[in-house]
């Protein structure tokens, strides 16, 4: 890139845009993110990366390392990780990608970026105490009885109300629509 009398057309940034990587590294699970050497072992192992064009775990870690906070937090990509942890098992530098993406999701949710399906499911479990109350009909009850299983599932609904009050305020989970 030769220096000329006027400014170079593309400014090369020599520092990360923000301290996002330190923010991630401060959370449990994110500690070793700065060990990443961008070798691509994770992406090669990732089933999602192998079946999509948009998702590359290595690139997401790269974006975090160069400080692209807004881009990463508002993206749906961190929510595509299946937490299968094949990448974590294989990473030779000890980077825990699925945990890093969990930390990213946690921060993203707090700042109002959460895909609709996650928001809806969380609200549902807050309300009912478990996920499938609405799907547990007479048919399923009969199935259980015919198998000799107790049709009364005994789920506790009260505790989730405490969880909701403590961690999510009085309103159901707020969040922007994703995608």
């Amino acid at each position: 890139m030769s220096e000329t009398a006027h400014e170079p057309r593309n400014k090369i940034a020599h520092e990360p845009k923000s301290t996002f990587s330190q923010e991630i590294a401060a959370q449990p699970g994110g500690e070793y993110i700065r060990k990443c050497i961008q070798c691509g072992l994770c992406t090669a192992s990732c089933m999602v990366a192998n079946y999509t064009d948009k998702y590359r775990p290595r690139k997401m870690v790269q974006k975090i390392l160069i400080g692209e906070r807004e881009e990463v937090l508002s993206s749906e990509l961190p929510w595509l990780c299946m937490t299968c942890r094949l990448c974590e098992e294989r990473c030779q530098e000890g980077v825990s990608l699925a945990e890093i993406f969990h930390v990213v999701r946690d921060i993203a949710a707090r700042e109002g970026h959460i895909p609709k399906v996650f928001k809806d499911t969380v609200n549902l479990v807050m309300k009912d105490g478990w996920l499938l109350k609405g799907s547990y009909t007479d048919f399923e009850q009969d199935d259980r009885t015919s198998l000799g299983l107790d049709p009364d599932l005994n789920w506790n609904e009260e505790f989730m109300k405490k969880v909701k009050a403590r961690y999510f305020g009085k309103e159901p989970v707020e969040g922007g629509e994703q995608e």
């Binding site: 949710a109 996650f118 506790n156």
Partner: peptide, 16 residues
């Protein structure tokens, strides 16, 4: 019992 929180609450709030 209650839901273990896998995947959904797990992603949205680690303490919850």
């Amino acid at each position: 019992a209650n839901c273990c929180g896998a995947q959904y609450v797990e992603s949205v709030n680690r303490h919850a």
